[in-house]
Design a protein around this nucleic acid. Structure first.
Lengths: 231, 231
DNA sequence: GCAAAAGTGTTTCCGGTACACCCATGA
DNA sequence: TCATGGGTGTACCGGAAACACTTTTGC
């Protein structure tokens, strides 16, 4: 039997908004419960002897295989509308577990976390209750269950603020990258184009980049410098 | 018997950092469990049919008598060190309740909220487990239990950022106030003096203040304008 | 008239933005 | 030599900061 009551804290869960990027668009990892046509953010529960942050890391690692990922907590959601015992019961039923009553049917206050990763490095794995997990373009998300759409919005708001400091922690780019690649990350996240000349100057003025040798790719134009983040 | 298990969500609590101000220093409301020499932030639990935000409002109202207070959630704390069943048991014992086992002894993940009020309008009331509740200067806080000192620090960080927008919501000042009073609020919260001339211009440029008639107090100097926040 | 507090003006500096120009490269 | 993309220079604007000056008031 999965999800033994003694193993987990009651009434509390986490949901994670995993942003993915790989040179173009911003994407988000979404679980699907096929037979129920229900879409949800990857989430989970906290074990009784486990710090909250650890639980979220564990969940992210199980979905993506990635360790050492920078996760940021952004808000805790505790309204009454995040409560649908019938749906939860059906989820367990689909997996062959028929309970009259289960802690899983109760009300959950959920803590929202987000992360930002390079989705090309990842083969996502569904959890024990869902049938698939897929990347969706941020602007083409399916209808998400309960308040998960609100959770995504709030995550993106937080991601967008103070982006400069965060990109150091998210190791989204390869060790060395061009200024153009960095700009593409910004543009995907902020959802708007940046002025090339000013972007370059702004990044350099932040004093977080180290300049390395030039990168020759055989294009008929000047070769760009490579940069890395300072330690 | 207090704190019936069926009434409350398990493993989840809130703690509130109530900042008080009245013309001079920034203060914080702290509970004391006298016989235990233990100091803590006012907190509480969430009823099974109650939104998280409502629970915090209810708690604040019970401690201060104030309704309609603007509360802001800032972080959720879930590390393992916030867990001390022996202390909790002793707390109940002091009140005459002797339990071998009680949900109150369990581990709690706590959601942090803060508010900012005029402490002169308030006669704080202790909760059912504590013996007193008092205002302490922010820079002379007693040693707080568990991670409550960290909670206070993080609350102040959040309060300090984007202060301009928040002062509209916190109704800390009287309906009409002078620019000097407004500046004193800023200085107490930010912990640093502001240039008078520039402060005045900055506030006026925000376009959130309405100017009213002058205030004559009989001082041998120019009378200041009164201001109110625009609706 | 004088001190004290309030209000306004002036100057400087810096970060952001817009735009122009020059440089390196391979076809 | 030309198109392309990369790097840097310049000019402008607005907000922040430092400081000076003027105004109003009661003694």
């Amino acid at each position: 039997m999965p999800l033994l009551q003694e193993e987990y804290l009651q009434n509390i869960s986490y949901d994670s908004v995993i942003f993915g990027f790989s040179g173009e668009k911003l994407k988000i990892l979404v679980l699907e419960y096929h037979n129920m046509k229900t879409f949800a953010l990857p989430g989970g529960f906290v074990k009784v002897n486990e710090p909250l942050d650890e639980a979220v890391k564990r969940g992210l690692s199980e979905r993506t295989g990635l360790d050492e990922i920078y996760l940021e907590q952004f808000h805790t959601f505790g309204s009454m509308d995040r409560f649908s015992p019938a749906v939860m019961r059906k989820m367990l039923l689909e997996q062959g577990y028929d309970y009259e009553d289960h802690w899983f049917f109760g009300r959950f206050i959920t803590v929202g976390y987000y992360a930002l990763i390079n989705y090309e490095n990842v083969v996502p794995k569904p959890d024990e209750l869902s049938d698939s997990i897929k990347w969706y373009d941020y602007d083409q998300l399916p209808k998400l269950m309960m308040d998960h759409a609100e959770i995504v919005e709030k995550a993106l708001d937080h991601l967008r603020s103070n982006l400069d400091h965060k990109l150091l922690s998210f190791n989204l780019l390869p060790e060395r990258f061009t200024m153009k690649e960095l700009q593409q990350v910004y543009e995907a996240i902020l959802g708007e184009t940046q002025n090339r000349a000013n972007f370059q100057r702004k990044m350099l003025s932040l004093n977080i980049l180290e300049r390395h040798e030039k990168l020759f790719l055989g294009g008929s134009h000047k070769a760009p410098f490579l940069y890395s983040f300072k330690k």
